[in-house]
Each structure stands twice: as structure tokens, then as C-alpha cells.
């Protein structure tokens, strides 16, 4: 658990009380921050802590908040750090991380389509993964929609 502790300490030192870090098991770290500093934390992790790889981004809904989970890895000791960014459903603004790691683009597009998170600065391109003609304000993975309700969309034509 030596490396885990090291990363934990340097993250806590840099962001003090704005971050909660927990080493739950071997090679797995879980951290929690507010969405407005998640970009800075990821930049710090990539620049200073030798993180190199973004495995994926998971979106979840928890009460009145969205939680966006960045699964990041440092090649040196293969620690998978899950950084949780919390943002309110009422104002779901999130800064893109494609400037730090371009591979994030498809995962961020997924957040836009599936949850309706407003990713600021996302490069233009095709939507993913919903079909053409799917309404822009219906987001399948929101908890207030059931499968039956979703089956109605897209309404025009087959």
C-alpha cells in the first residue's frame, strides 16, 4: 500500500480539504471532489503524479447530484484511481478533459447523450451513442425514465 499512500498524501497536500481520498483495497484509490475543480485535479495527476491513462468515464445519478467517475491509471505501479466529480442536476456543467487526454472524447460524448451533462469545450463531432432523430432533451440513463417510456422515442418515422 506504499504507492497508494504516497498518491493519497500528495493529493491531500495539493488540494487540502477540497478532496477526500480513500485507499479501499490494493491498487485501488477512490477520491471525491467538487466538479468545479475536477479538471485541475486531473491536470495535476497527469502532470505531477505520472498518471497516463484514462480507462473510462462513468456517469451515475445520486439523489440531487450527478456523479462523474473518472477511472485513471498510472502505468508505473498500475494503480487505478477513481476520481468522483459531483455536480448538481440543476446546473450540470462540467469542463472537458480532452485538452489533457484526447482519448476522453467518446466517453464525454456519452455523458452528454446519456445524462444530459453539459460538457464545456467538447470538440464538435457526431453524437454518441443514441440514434439519429433522438430528442436532445431525453437522456436514457436518468433515473426518472423507465425503459417503457424510453421505448417511445424517437417519435417520428421508423
Amino acid at each position: 500500500m506504499k504507492n497508494e499512500e504516497k498518491i493519497k498524501q500528495s493529493l491531500e497536500k495539493q488540494f487540502s480539504d477540497k478532496i477526500e481520498v480513500e485507499a479501499r483495497s490494493k491498487q485501488k484509490l477512490w477520491a471525491k471532489v467538487d466538479a468545479n475543480i475536477s479538471h485541475d485535479v486531473i491536470k495535476y495527476m497527469f502532470d505531477e503524479l505520472k498518471f497516463q491513462y484514462l480507462a473510462t468515464i462513468t456517469g451515475t445519478e445520486e439523489g440531487d447530484n450527478f456523479e462523474v467517475l473518472y477511472h485513471l491509471q498510472a502505468d508505473e505501479h498500475s494503480i487505478l484511481c477513481t476520481l468522483r466529480a459531483v455536480l448538481p442536476i440543476k446546473k450540470p456543467d462540467l469542463k472537458t478533459i480532452t485538452d489533457i487526454i484526447p482519448g476522453a472524447i467518446w466517453y464525454e460524448r456519452e455523458l452528454v447523450d446519456m445524462f444530459g451533462i453539459n460538457v464545456i469545450g467538447l470538440p464538435k463531432g457526431n453524437r454518441y451513442p443514441l440514434p439519429d432523430g433522438w430528442p436532445k432533451d431525453v437522456h436514457p440513463l436518468r433515473k426518472n425514465l423507465t425503459q417503457e417510456e424510453l421505448s417511445k422515442y424517437p417519435k417520428e418515422g421508423k
Binding site: 443514441l130 440514434p131 436514457p140 425503459q147 417503457e148 424510453l150 421505448s151 422515442y153 421508423k158
Partner: peptide, 13 residues
Amino acid sequence: YGCYGVLGGVDKI
């Protein structure tokens, strides 16, 4: 069957 992205069997089309 029942997934929102799926219309159903081929015979629907």
C-alpha cells in the same frame, strides 16, 4: 426485448 434502443425482431421491419 424491451430495451429502449431495440425495435424488436426482424419481422417488425
